[in-house]
């Protein structure tokens, strides 16, 4: 029932909006980080879950959005009206260039070529004098909103800035996946040959969604660098791409709530487990294996399965 769904999302949004009233400091930053990675993971799911394009290079666009923001601010371009569109546009442009090469391939070749091209971006970040190479870049200030009373240096204001952009992005992505365009993407995932025979030019659809996903990843990167005041090349390494793909798998491929839940779960578990042991990746790996083995649709898929089988679901 759509009205119940909208009610549910409104409740989630209200709860997230109330967070700064309840907590501050670490927990606010922690929630903000989950929001950012929820967006990052959902953007990847547009490719992996909806279109069937498993990318292992998605962190490149996240990184470009982050570096673009940090470099512009360092160059003295501090107005948000310039910084935000520039970060998103540059990520989209990079996605257009990389996507144009990648979408010619499918399956394992697609995975490998996204990985290779993203590593290229990583090496640029690693070796360019502009990016501070291995040391990364420190940001000494956040961009200026230009609006009276809104100061992004204030962590609460910045939290609402993130929430607004992430909420809007999820709204747009939700529209996208239920639109005729989104349905065509799902058709391409299920059977590309059939879609071509019905007059759909699959390449155009794939490239478009690749660019859109890259733009949203760039937006997540823009928020990330503002949250951390720091970015280094490890954020756009293939390891980071694998991590965000893990979030999508944990939460559930082919849904938008899945990546959000996956991001919260991953970041939450990492936080909890790493407070006990430095080897947090081992328990995390075991949990991932269990989820993939026993809950094919991730946590969200498991939840939906329980609900549809449950006696209370009339």
């Amino acid at each position: 029932m759509p009205s119940r769904r909208i009610l549910f999302y409104a409740a989630v949004l209200a709860a997230l909006g109330a967070v700064p009233m309840a907590v501050g400091g670490f927990y606010l930053e922690f929630t903000n980080q989950i929001l950012i990675f929820a967006l990052f993971a959902a953007s990847l799911d547009l490719l992996a879950g909806y279109t069937g394009l498993i990318s292992l290079g998605h962190a490149a666009f996240f990184g470009i959005g982050a570096y673009a923001t940090a470099i512009l601010v360092e160059l003295g371009v501090v107005r948000l009206v310039f910084v935000l569109p520039a970060a998103v546009l540059l990520s989209a442009l990079a996605a257009a260039a990389i996507g144009a090469l990648c979408i010619r391939t499918t399956g394992v070749s697609f995975i490998m070529i996204t990985l290779a091209l993203a590593q290229l971006v990583y090496y640029v970040a690693l070796n360019s004098p502009m990016t501070g190479s291995t040391d990364g870049m420190l940001m000494f200030q956040r961009p200026e909103s230009g609006l009276p009373g809104i100061d992004l240096e204030n962590n609460i204001h910045f939290y609402y800035y993130s929430l607004l952009l992430v909420g809007l992005s999820f709204g747009i992505m939700g529209r996208l996946v239920s639109s005729p365009f989104g349905r065509a993407l799902q058709g391409i995932r299920a059977n590309e040959e059939r879609m071509s025979a019905m007059g759909y030019r699959a390449g155009t659809y794939k490239l478009t969604v690749f660019v859109i996903a890259g733009a949203f990843a760039g937006l997540a990167g823009h928020l990330f660098v503002n949250l951390q005041f720091f970015i280094d090349p490890s954020s756009l390494q293939w390891h980071a791409s694998g991590q965000v793909l893990t979030m999508v798998l944990m939460g559930g491929l082919g849904t938008l709530s899945g990546p959000a839940v996956g991001a919260a779960l991953f970041i939450g578990l990492e936080e909890v487990i790493s407070s006990y042991t430095d080897h947090w990746m081992l328990p995390m790996g075991i949990i991932l294996v269990l989820i993939v083995l026993f809950a094919r649709g991730g946590v969200v898929g498991l939840w939906r399965g329980i609900r549809s089988k449950g006696p209370w679901n009339g």
Binding site: S179, P180, F181, A190, E193
Partner: peptide, 30 residues
């Protein structure tokens, strides 16, 4: 060669949708 996980209607809708001029229809749900 169908889209087995889609409903029968959704299969047919996807076929009928190919008759839309243009391709980037995103503002109205399918």
């Amino acid at each position: 060669t169908l889209f087995p996980e889609f409903t029968v209607f959704e299969n047919m809708r996807l076929a009928a949708q190919s008759q839309l001029p243009g391709w980037f229809h995103i503002w109205r749900p399918a």
